[in-house]
Structures are given as structure tokens and as C-alpha cells.
């Protein structure tokens, strides 16, 4: 399989097999600067329904049909 299919916040996207979550998020424009302090990037990621802690993003590789949900905090009461 040359490309795998990933669902990100409900949208289907393709990427190379074994792409790391960190690399994928960068490609998707969700992380502008990977040198930035990861705690400060204001994001949370769930992979297949379970929260994936930030230190694991670089080493967690994506498989076909994985489902990613990416969240941040915005203005709200």
C-alpha cells in the first residue's frame, strides 16, 4: 500500500505508511513549529478514541484507517 487513509476530525486524508502522528499533524498545518515547546502548543490529540500524550506523538506511527481527533481550547463561557 503506497498511501494509507487517516481520519482527522472526521475528514479522510491520505499519508505515507508509518508516518508519525507528529509528522502528520505538521503536514496538516496543525503544528506550525515543531521546535516549539510541546506543552505550550495548546493541543490535545486522541488516537482511535484514546488520548495520546504529547511525548508519544513523535514515536506513534499511523496505520491504515486510524482515527485522529485534534482539539484545542478556544474562547467560551
Amino acid at each position: 500500500m503506497s498511501q494509507i487513509s487517516i481520519s482527522i476530525n472526521g475528514t479522510q486524508v491520505t499519508c505515507a505508511p508509518n508516518t508519525s502522528v507528529l509528522a502528520f499533524l505538521t503536514t496538516q498545518g496543525l503544528i506550525q513549529d515543531i521546535s516549539q515547546d510541546m506543552i505550550q502548543n495548546g493541543m490535545a490529540v486522541a488516537k482511535n478514541g484514546s488520548i495520546l500524550a504529547k511525548p508519544l506523538w513523535a514515536n506513534s506511527s499511523l496505520q491504515h484507517n486510524d482515527k485522529l481527533d485534534v482539539f484545542t481550547l478556544v474562547a467560551g463561557g
Binding site: 476530525n9 486524508v13 496538516q28 498545518g29 495548546g42 484545542t72 481550547l73 478556544v74 474562547a75 467560551g76
Partner: peptide
């Protein structure tokens, strides 16, 4: 207070947190 929201790819999001 702040609220949780899903991020959209390639879309500028609310910078309230920053």
C-alpha cells in the same frame, strides 16, 4: 474560562488561548 474545540486542518483558529 475556555472551551474545548476540534481543530480544523489548514484553518486559522481562535488565538484566545495564546
Amino acid at each position: 474560562t475556555l472551551a474545548m474545540k476540534r481543530l480544523s486542518a489548514h484553518v486559522e483558529h481562535d488565538n484566545s488561548l495564546a
